[in-house]
Design a protein around this nucleic acid. Sequence first.
DNA 1: CAATTAATCAATCATTCGCTTAAATATTAA
DNA 2: TTAATATTTAAGCGAATGATTGATTAATTG
Lengths: 230, 230
Amino acid sequence: MTKRAFKDAVYRQAAWIGKALASPKRLELLELLAQAPRTVEVLAAETEATVANTSQHLQILFAAGLLDAHKGGRFVTYRLADASVGKFLLDFRALSEKRRAEIDRIKRQFFAEMGEVEPVNQETLLERVRRGEALVLDVRPAEEFHHAHLVGAISLPLPELESRLSQLPKNKEVVAYCRGPFCVLAAEAVQRLRRHGIPAYRLEGSVYDLQALGLPTTASASGHPPAVDR
Amino acid sequence: MTKRAFKDAVYRQAAWIGKALASPKRLELLELLAQAPRTVEVLAAETEATVANTSQHLQILFAAGLLDAHKGGRFVTYRLADASVGKFLLDFRALSEKRRAEIDRIKRQFFAEMGEVEPVNQETLLERVRRGEALVLDVRPAEEFHHAHLVGAISLPLPELESRLSQLPKNKEVVAYCRGPFCVLAAEAVQRLRRHGIPAYRLEGSVYDLQALGLPTTASASGHPPAVDR
DNA sequence: CAATTAATCAATCATTCGCTTAAATATTAA
DNA sequence: TTAATATTTAAGCGAATGATTGATTAATTG
């Protein structure tokens, strides 16, 4: 093996990971799977793609080594291969947001259109959460909450929001989070809570972002459920 | 903007970074640039590609936001856009090595073919370096050494190795490092040092890997030169 | 066993990619 | 100004990609 053949071989291997990250749909799939394992059907529905297409993308991610697949009955459940993939995805997203300023523009535009009030400074919001001054809502589907969530957060999936409004304590500021800065669930929750006169704010980070910022979670490591949850 | 349009737009942006990482040649260029800025010509020579092809790859990396370009005279010098890109590359390489076992196989085969003795445990090697028990050689080109290097390391570029052998202290173990685990310079240095009867070992990590492991370097942050060097 | 369901596979097609060769641009040196 | 040098641009080509559609496989249910 020549030096050139060695370098070509090694970088060709690494490029498999790059190729896996080179498609918008695949990145969306990865971010969903970072929250909790899912079946092909569910992933296809959530990303608004056909099942066949989603299956193909999942196979590319699997071939790259980023996913594990497990067949149970008629369903194939895909999940991140290990916690290091989840951790890497946080780094990848951070780099994307830092180096592609366009992302910030798109976010601003979208959330402004949603009628979001001047986005509260995330730092001060975090500080209130740390001090327990705000009621923290996890508005993702219950299964994702179960997989990993912020300690002290209440699970209130979006479809149940209105029907469970009365259970919320009065006169307490509410902070909602979902899957991360590219997820719209929390923004929609805030919109609907405000319609009912509740002072609500959106926290941008996912459980794993917040965990990395030092907030206590039920997950011991990014991407995989904690022992206590099993 | 619908929710779908939002997600599509955001992930399309992030996928630019993925696309940049999806080519073996581009990954090789990035790892070279992580050591020091370079011109197109030099990069083409080092990656054994045509200048036109290299220029095209560099433009893709630039468009993705990973590189800065600076024109001085007739030369265009490319460099990593900022230190966060260098840091990310370490994470990307780590994930690649972890999730694509084939890389380890290729490395073992190549270095075995080079006649490398049973690869010394990197941990024990590092410990000897930390304790100052070994003479640490930086066998990269002088310019890269100047850009950032391990504190205490001696610059001994490969082409000068034989001619400067006599300057090495006798009876001291030698440890050589270069650009990282995919770089062959240190392995070749070790090979040649051993031919001259010098007990030499290869350290896998780059300056930035070693910095992340806590070894003192002249670089304050990954990928960009330290203030002290300017 | 037949029908249903989840997922994959196969064929197709327009698009993009990686690379080559050759021409064009821009800057410096003679 | 001409020549030389560094880089980019343009055109072209085979291979790979992303998506669609329809068929196929495998497991479950009636």
